[in-house]
Design a protein around this nucleic acid. Structure first.
Lengths: 338, 338
DNA sequence: TGCAAGATTGACAACGTTATCTTATTTGTT
DNA sequence: AACAAATAAGATAACGTTGTCAATCTTGCA
């Protein structure tokens, strides 16, 4: 945009271009006098270095890409905000690549993007972060990357995630503390990392409290409103009815709430309903739904921070990988009256 | 990423680097024989040109930035998808810059971003697209830009938008066709372009049908669930009660629904509720809400298309600026029984 | 046939920065 | 005081592409 170059700054400051470059990049071995002179000239000319030239010479772009294929807009936007925040701290811009993980040509699409688009590294969200072919390509081509909430974290690659197992444990523990023992559980879509972890937390809480595990109270959902409805219909019409239903996300919880109303079952006095994700809908229903809030913003920040460390070949071991969720108690849950 | 250069391709194809460049850029005056030879070499080496070098020499980046500060994640994500789609057609990558339009340092933040970040042009969503200072900066510095749903379109700058006035007119017309004459209206946040337009459409429909305009049925909302609740509480407790309430967005409609339930008012038999935006929540409530779907994806595409035309200094006059919305009828609306 | 005009190709410079290498200066050590 | 080592600054090349200009080869027309 601006056509002022380092040369101009150097001329005004009365130093060489390299010295200007040194000051701009905060390199060592420059006298304070020089630094001041250069900074003054930079300010006077309102100079900003040309990112393209920087990129060409230094093999850097200061661009990080965020790949996603996620049906939850609230999640994505929050993640973007967090990533942007950390990016601006570290001096990186954020490029996005929304894609469809169900598409046949996903791999080709992503690889083409990686090749044609200038970038220093990429962040992968689930479910793409578990795509073996894509991960392999990144490793083979030594493209720095970080994964958010991956299904397989045994992989020796950097990732960040929230402790879904722990959060689901705490939610179940909370329900048990309210006196519930017949707690229905609606699982999420099998393709998502979170599904198994949330289920594990639920089971662990039952075990911890010596409550028998009842297969009939577990239903397989798909994270959609409709699947929540379907599962609720089963749970609320079978002989073995739960007094509380823990849905693996808020959309499904909303579906449960709808079915409860259709059956004239009062929530929460007759049925406690809880969700997961703190989606906007959880606040907009009546009654508002008790849920779990993931540290999405934090995850976005942490992912970028790790990635930048990798790009700069610094150690990222001191950056946490797992972040805690928060239990948000609203009006859809109450003590068991039986 | 790859360290194969044009030189390698040129060597393999047995031509000069410039000829390779010509083929890559589809320039005229190259023999078919050459084109084939070069393409073969490109494919064989799996070559992709270095975007940084291209950018430096040609003063192009093939990056478009999307600036937004919008509380509606569904809107943003859909816009991003549309923008991405058109971007991939035209060969542009999409960079995002989420910001807070209420921040004191908005201007500085945006300008800093514009300076430090390589890009060929930017897309502004409301409310930032109506920030005079930012627009002035863009014009003064001749940075190509396009605006989405601006409040002031008299400005001689390119924009795209949906016909909110028309859609609100159609919605009101629909309510009138159901026999409603006492139609409450909850306005949106005054800072948004859509607010006035939706209100205008409502008023025009009343006028067209010779229905008197009643100030008492108009309430000022803020596009939030809570403001919808507050307005509904007023509307449903005053003497002059409406038989239908048209909220300017779905969040507020959800608030109205909640209040109706609290007052034991059956929806839709006793009260028709309609919203705007086709937000996910509109489907997840019981009953699901009649609403209006904006052509958001199309707007994203059109904005990028226009912007690319501007960047390439082609005329953009043949690209539509205004796109139609769609009325989505669900279960929250029914004929007036009075 | 001769020559202007156009088509085709290539050599080389240029984009704006950073890396490498060199030179001059200062500091520290015996 | 002498010399090694560290510090400070600059000259120049290089990153990988496209723009400019010149050179060669065709083509069309008188």
């Amino acid at each position: 945009m601006s056509n002022i170059t380092i040369k101009d700054v150097a001329a005004l400051a009365g130093v060489s271009v390299k010295t200007v470059s040194r000051v701009l990049n905060k390199e060592a071995n420059v006298r304070d006098v020089m630094i001041e002179r250069v900074n003054k000239a930079v300010k006077e000319l309102n100079f900003t270095p040309n990112p393209m030239a920087r990129g060409l010479r230094g093999h850097k772009t200061f661009i990080i890409s965020l790949l996603y294929s996620n049906p939850n807009p609230g999640y994505i936007v929050e993640l973007q905000k967090g990533a942007m925040q950390q990016g601006s701290i570290d001096g990186y811009n954020l490029q996005i690549f929304p894609c469809d993980h169900t598409a046949d040509d996903l791999y080709e699409t992503v690889i083409t993007f990686l090749k044609n688009s200038p970038q220093d590294g990429i962040i992968l969200t689930h479910p793409i972060c578990d795509n073996k072919a894509i991960i392999k390509y990144l490793e083979d081509n030594q493209i720095p990357f970080a994964r958010i909430s991956p299904l397989y974290s045994d992989h020796n690659s950097p990732y960040v995630g929230s402790d879904d197992e722990k959060a689901a444990f705490e939610m179940t523990q909370y329900l048990i503390s309210l006196g519930h023992t017949k707690i229905g559980f609606i699982k999420g879509h099998p393709d998502f990392a979170a599904t198994q972890k949330r289920f594990d937390g639920y089971k662990r809480a039952l075990t911890t409290n010596a409550i028998g595990f009842d297969e009939e109270l577990i239903k397989q959902g798909l994270f959609t409103f409709e699947s929540g409805e379907a599962c609720a219909r089963q749970l609320l019409t079978q002989d073995n009815k739960p007094t509380a239903i823990f849905a693996s996300n808020d959309y499904m919880a909303a579906g449960v709430l709808k079915v409860a109303k259709q059956h004239n079952i009062n929530v929460p006095s007759e049925l406690t309903i809880t969700g997961y994700d703190d989606a906007p809908v959880s606040k907009q229903l009546w009654p508002p739904i008790t849920t779990i809030k993931q540290p999405i913003y934090q995850l976005g920040m942490a992912a970028v921070e790790k990635l930048v460390h990798i790009i700069k070949k610094k150690s990222y071991k001191d950056i946490d990988s797992i972040y805690d969720c928060e239990l948000i108690i609203r009006d859809s849950s109450s003590p068991c009256i039986l």
